[in-house]
């Protein structure tokens, strides 16, 4: 009797799967994969600072950034547009998770080199993880000859290091946030009271206004600022506009520099006093090396 029941049960199981519709079968057969969340931010920068985003393997990006003078300089300086700081950079993604960049800023004639490595990607589905975590490291080398001729600094004296852990999360398709704990080391400081090691915490977010336009904000809080300057925390607002292979970022910020050691530790403008610099980042992406497409037909 028992066996008959098993038999009947098995048989009915067979007929159930027979009656199941084809799409249902495909649903069942679909491999359970985890889906990585992409495009937490549109660009590799939130505004001034780096975002968790890397470019995909083989992408070479040429970025030109400008920050003009302060808006409150008035009409004589055309609201700051007469003064201009520029940084241009080449940034290359060696793998989907690892990129290198070199840049040169006119401000204090500084060269910078950085790497960014995407450690963990935000994902949904199987083994999901709620955030993307990237590690960022950069070295800046200041070449401006602003020293006393009798006290010429050596190479090491002119280096600045930045390390960041970037933690970003796309909360919904329209809203992304980022936290950026930052450690900056200055090989040289102006006065003895200035800290060599500076700690800061960055907050960034973006809100999608449309598929191609986002509104971004970024704030860096510095825990132990430099004493020799009257520094302020860096604040920036801006929009990202994406058109094909370009991303434009239009920025209003109280910081004039575009590298971490500059805008995080040396910002002196008060945003709400009108010390606002208008600026932009323009990037153009080129594909190098080509990605292998597995499109060969299997006949």
């Amino acid at each position: 009797m028992k066996k008959t029941i098993i038999f009947l049960a098995l048989l009915s199981l067979g007929s159930v799967s027979n009656a199941q519709d084809l799409l249902g079968i495909l649903e069942d057969e679909a491999p359970k994969t985890k889906n990585h969340v992409s495009s937490t931010f549109k660009g590799t920068r939130v505004l001034n600072g780096h975002s968790v985003e890397n470019r995909k393997k083989g992408t070479l990006e040429f970025i030109i950034s400008h920050r003009f003078g302060r808006l409150n300089l008035g009409i004589d300086e055309l609201f700051g547009l007469d003064q201009s700081n520029i940084r241009f950079a080449f940034e290359h993604a060696l793998t989907d998770n690892f990129m290198l960049g070199i840049g040169r800023s006119s401000f204090e004639k500084t060269y910078d080199g950085f790497f960014k490595y995407k450690l963990i990607r935000q994902s949904t589905g199987k083994n999901s993880f709620p955030a993307t975590i990237s590690l960022f490291g950069s070295t800046a080398y200041k070449t401006i000859k602003d020293y006393d001729p009798n006290d010429k600094p050596d190479f090491n004296d002119r280096l600045y290091y930045t390390s960041q852990v970037l933690i970003g999360s796309k909360l919904s398709p329209g809203v992304s946030v980022q936290l950026s704990p930052t450690y900056i080391h200055n090989n040289t400081v102006r006065i003895n009271n200035d800290p060599h090691d500076i700690f800061a915490l960055g907050f960034g977010n973006r809100i999608k206004l449309s598929n191609r336009v986002t509104l971004n904000a970024e704030y860096y809080y510095t825990f132990n600022p430099l004493e020799s300057l009257d520094t302020k925390n860096s604040l920036a607002f801006g929009v990202d506009i994406e058109t094909g292979g370009h991303v434009f970022q239009l920025i209003l910020s109280n910081s004039i520099t575009m590298i971490e050691k500059g805008f995080i530790t040396e910002t002196t403008g008060g945003f709400f006093d009108g010390d606002i610099h208008f600026g932009f980042n323009i990037s153009r992406a080129f594909q190098t090396g080509g990605r292998k497409r597995k499109n060969q037909s299997r006949e």
Partner: peptide
Amino acid sequence: GEIAVSLLIQSFIFEKSLMQEHFNEN
């Protein structure tokens, strides 16, 4: 003769990665 086909949009591979991102996002 019944047929059903299903695919994930995300699984389309483009030569230009940025294009792939825009394809999915925008």
